[in-house]
Design a protein around this nucleic acid. Sequence first.
DNA 1: CTAATTGCAAATTGTTTGCATATTC
DNA 2: GAATATGCAAACAATTTGCAATTAG
Lengths: 136, 136
Amino acid sequence: MLLLRELLREKGLKVTPQRLAILQTLKEGGHLSIEEIYQKLYAQFPSLSLATIYKNLHLLLERGIITELAIHNRHKFEIVKEPHSHFICEKCGKIEDIHLSPEICEKLNQKFPDSRQEVYIYGICPRCRGEKGEKE
Amino acid sequence: MLLLRELLREKGLKVTPQRLAILQTLKEGGHLSIEEIYQKLYAQFPSLSLATIYKNLHLLLERGIITELAIHNRHKFEIVKEPHSHFICEKCGKIEDIHLSPEICEKLNQKFPDSRQEVYIYGICPRCRGEKGEKE
DNA sequence: CTAATTGCAAATTGTTTGCATATTC
DNA sequence: GAATATGCAAACAATTTGCAATTAG
């Protein structure tokens, strides 16, 4: 289990309540947009400014503490963790971490050594698929 | 070889010089951002407005004539063609179409039936890797 | 105490909208 | 001629910057 304050110190960043809160939110929320982070934090930090979030996300990206997902035009961020891919439901918009099978990963790595693969799978999630009364 | 004007008519869009130019540019350029399209067209169409490009790209997306690539935060567009993936050079930023091996495609389709996969491979392209005098 | 961080307001950049004019079919 | 498209300017939204006040180490 990663201690957020240590993570920050390790990377040479000061530990501030705002930073911890941003990381904590990402940790809980999984994949969040800037606006979502702002909304979630507004309750505990009415003084928190968007500028601070922007500045921090840039810093955290730079230091490799978080990554940015390119889900079409909605930027999402998540804390760096083990390599994984993403499934995006085209109906409800939910994003889920998925793990490709070892064979696929191996094949990709074989074909593109020394590279980083980002795989996005767009489809309908089980929940949306299964629901009888169409949600929308 | 696809005739752009027919493509437009098929989809119920009127054929205008601006539209043709935008499509032509995309066809030649491969993957272009809005700004890039604008730059390229400015020479032949000094009157062309960004608003027109925005409006047209939305329409073309809607009708499935073009697709949008989510390359981190730089939106790129390209004309719809056979399924393919993209390689992005982290050094020079070049984007190249790549084709995954049939085995990988098959495995992905098996694992995620009825879905669309977007695969981005980030690495250093041969040109950047090979050049002795570092470009930057 | 020093350097980094915050948060405001202003500046900048990116995108969308309304509407009068022009164009396509 | 009717419906659609263009392009301008204005509106709106997203992101960045400068800076004085505050905080972490």
